[in-house]
Design a binder for these strands. Structure first.
Lengths: 257, 257
DNA sequence: AAACACTTTCGTTTTCTTTCGTTTTCGCTT
DNA sequence: AAGCGAAAACGAAAGAAAACGAAAGTGTTT
């Protein structure tokens, strides 16, 4: 057993089981603890893993391994169902825009899981871009612009301008508020600017918003609800009168999942 | 048993069992260890295997493009030193462009480690963008464009066009080849396009290239070396005549680390 | 005799283990 | 919940065994 061989096997185990312990590696390879530690140290300097007490973990890239708000996100089940329903709208060969936010991210994940082919995804959503790059059959175009740490997305005028270069069949748009009178709203201007550009460069506008966003109004207005081709939301507590008001105001279709 | 014959048999065994040891080959062929080692050394220079202590392994599979994680591991020390030296050039308040590639990534990491403030980083390097977003005092502008899986970067005409919106004090540029006559070269046109745009939109051009790139020529030409303000490379095997030729051809400064 | 292939020899390097003192972690007590 | 102590893990250093590279020597072939 050569050193290189052993180190490759360590990486392989790490990929398979997500972690390795010094003790386990000692037993498996029949070498002493300092030897294992030396291997781990060598691999760490090459950034192929992260050492911990007692073993090692895969390298930390907080984005790829979202311990981020996605897990603690409100209503993870609803978001996933909305994402799956939205992904079903996409046909092979289409170009779609994916907005920032965890719900749009779920659309991307569902799209990759479907194994659809020939789809081009345009997105400012960083975790989504990273995830979809790996997916076969999906081309990813990243929207450039100022990277916003907490939103994990590119926002602002540069991002909005970038969208003038592309035209998509469909945009999957998130929003902080969806109200029949006020329209779609978000919490800041930079995001509103980008969303308006997305709407302007897509043939169909699909709004994905869980039930907590309906009838809410946030700070910055994006567009009236009349631009919305389809609204996908979860079933909970969507009043019939609210639904009627939205359809009256120009929403093309409301889908509950 | 001729030398050639023996070496073929070594390769055959390697294919069959995935590894060979010096001891095993000594026994099989009835020759001494130095002879076996000479055979292995000869086969290694022809890239038909990889030597290790005690034997040899098959060459790294060139069927697949090496994964990003694997490329990060090559010459980690040199890249890191180059990255640190490059990061020292940056002053607070500057705007810098960081190219794709692992060496440019190291510049970003070193920049974040310095804790420098008020710096704006413009990059198409996805891992770098993700890493620097977390760094306090650094604003990240992501260059939009088609996301390339293996390079972990945005490339192509969209990315090149995006750069027309920005002007930077400095660009840290990688290259597959740096040659006094031919200039800077890379392996594909999409990358060359972006690099030319980076050069056009930066006041100073700092090329970061480990010693294996010097005097090499790759497929797509980027620019003559006369655009280079500063070349940062590692100390190993940089001939004085080569250095003189580069300086003659218009390189402003060569820094060895 | 010259060229070539191989071996022998020897000093150096690499790899691994053992040992020991220090740090971290975790469970237990208060 | 906070503090304490034992056990585990860690890093560094020293030493032994194996492998390595280079150079000189041997034998065979042409």
């Amino acid at each position: 057993m050569f050193v290189e061989e052993r180190q490759q096997r360590i990486l392989q185990r790490l990929r398979e089981q997500g972690k390795v312990t010094v003790e386990e590696l000692m037993g498996d390879f029949g070498v002493s603890a300092p030897t294992v530690r030396a291997d781990l140290a060598a691999l760490e300097t090459r950034r192929l893993l992260r050492r911990t007490h007692g073993g090692a973990l895969p390298p930390a890239t907080s984005l790829y391994e979202p311990t981020y708000a996605e897990r603690v996100g409100t209503q993870p089940g609803e978001k996933r169902r909305i994402g799956k329903a939205a992904a079903r709208l996409v046909r092979p060969g289409e170009t779609v825009i994916l907005d920032a936010g965890t719900t749009a991210h779920e659309v991307g994940v569902a799209l990759a899981a479907r194994g659809i082919s020939g789809v081009t995804v345009v997105t400012n959503n960083l975790p989504t871009a990273v995830a979809l790059m790996e997916a076969p059959g999906i081309e990813v175009i990243v929207i450039g612009g100022l990277a916003h740490l907490h939103r994990r997305a590119m926002l602002g005028p540069l991002a909005a301008d970038f969208l003038h270069r592309v035209h998509a069949d469909r945009v999957f748009l998130g929003a902080n508020g969806v109200d029949a009178q006020v329209g779609l709203t978000v919490v800041d201007f930079d995001a509103a600017l980008v969303k308006r550009a997305m709407i302007a460069h897509a043939a169909e506008v699909v709004v994905i918003a869980d039930s907590t966003k309906i009838c809410q109004v946030a700070f910055a207005q994006v567009a009236p609800v009349s631009v919305v081709t389809c609204l996908i939301t979860d079933d909970a507590s969507l009043d019939e009168s609210v639904e009627a008001a939205l359809l009256d105001a120009g929403v093309g279709l409301i889908e509950r999942v």
